[in-house]
Amino acid sequence: MLEYFKMIPEELVRQILMRVSYKSHSKLKKVCKNWKAMVEDPQFYEDRLRCGRSEEFICLLETVNHQFKSLPLVTIYDPINKLWEKLPTIPAEFEFCSSSKLICVKHKLVLLGLSQRNRAGSKRKRTETTKAILIFDFLSCKWRKGADMPTRECPANFGCCASPEGLIYLAGGRQNGEITGKATSQAAVYNVETNEWKLLPNMLQNQWLCDCVFIEGMMYVVCLYDEEVQQFEPETEVWSVLPNMWFIEDCMYPMVAAFGRLYCFQWDVVTEYDSRENLWRIVDGLPQPLDSVDAAVLGDRIFLSGVESGSKNHTFFYIYQLPLKTGVNRERWICVERPQYFSQSCIQSVATLVI
């Protein structure tokens, strides 16, 4: 078979391999050195994206109760084949904190706000969030430590999101990493490729319990207890305030951008933001009331995780299919099944991987 491929022009071989599912790339690496180098080249995945051959997966940062212990876990959901799998365990000196977040940028998964043991083996207080970062590269399938967050305080309850250019933005949080600490106005941006952080101008107001999202080239920072939303323009690095934009009572997460619109999931309803009138409208209902909701965009759909209202450990997963402009009638909510092993998990963060 390999001799046959040697007779085919290299560019044509490349086009063929670009159509192979990512799940089979580990097998392609074993065929020959040329294929291994091709599949491990980041440009290969850029070309897959450009020609419409990339795949989308859901990544989840979670803890699982197993034999009376809380185990840190990063899992992947394949929505096409409906398969779940675990990523390799994070290095032993790192631990998740209550404010840890997960962001996907290109072929990398980034964990922010991790606790890390010092050389003596001791651990920080459980209520403290450190600046440690871990990066999982889906090309090498290995974890590596990233540059520590450069913020002046160790943030807790901070907001973060990825820009269309693949940069990670961080905003707000609690001072000194304490959940009772004062809110902060700090902001920074991280380049995963160069492993470099840059401090940004402070926000106009202190914010905590933040959620961040990019839409139409602007980053929006929403705070649970503030009706004024802060906007950041990356090109000019200027902050501005959008007054009376956020007034969904007692609702924080999640806010996601899809098709140029903002959506929020509040207990039992789906709300959509109307920028022309600066108000939120209820556009749909959830299949059931959910607490601790998180979400990620999956093409023209939204993946949703949440805990059954009134329950502390019964997590449900749904795929919300956004109404199409063509008027095609399709099922709005699809329940996602999980293996029994994950039934007692607690989801902290959800993100979409495009590879």
Rank of each mutant, 00 (worst) to 15 (best):
D148R: 12
W333A: 05
P289T: 06
V105A: 11
Q321W: 01
R124F: 04
M219F: 02
S100C: 03
R261M: 11
K101N: 09
E308Y: 02
F138E: 06
T315P: 02
G260T: 08
P201Q: 01
V222L: 13
C141I: 01
E40C: 12
M252A: 02
H107V: 04
V269A: 10
F94I: 05
F138W: 07
S309M: 12
F57D: 03
Q67N: 13
K142A: 09
T89K: 13
T180I: 13
S99L: 01
R119E: 15
V283Y: 04
E235C: 06
P150Q: 08
W143Q: 09
G113H: 05
T151L: 15
L87W: 05
M149R: 03
A162F: 03
R261P: 00
A295M: 06
G146M: 10
Y341M: 05
N65R: 12
E95K: 07
G260W: 11
M7T: 13
S70T: 09
V256K: 10
S345I: 02
A147L: 03
A92K: 12
H314S: 13
A156N: 15
D274F: 07
R338N: 04
N329Q: 13
Y4E: 08
C212P: 01
Q266Y: 04
K131N: 13
Q288S: 11
N118H: 12
E93C: 09
E277D: 10
A296N: 06
M252L: 15
D211Y: 06
K29R: 15
N191I: 03
E249L: 11
I103F: 01
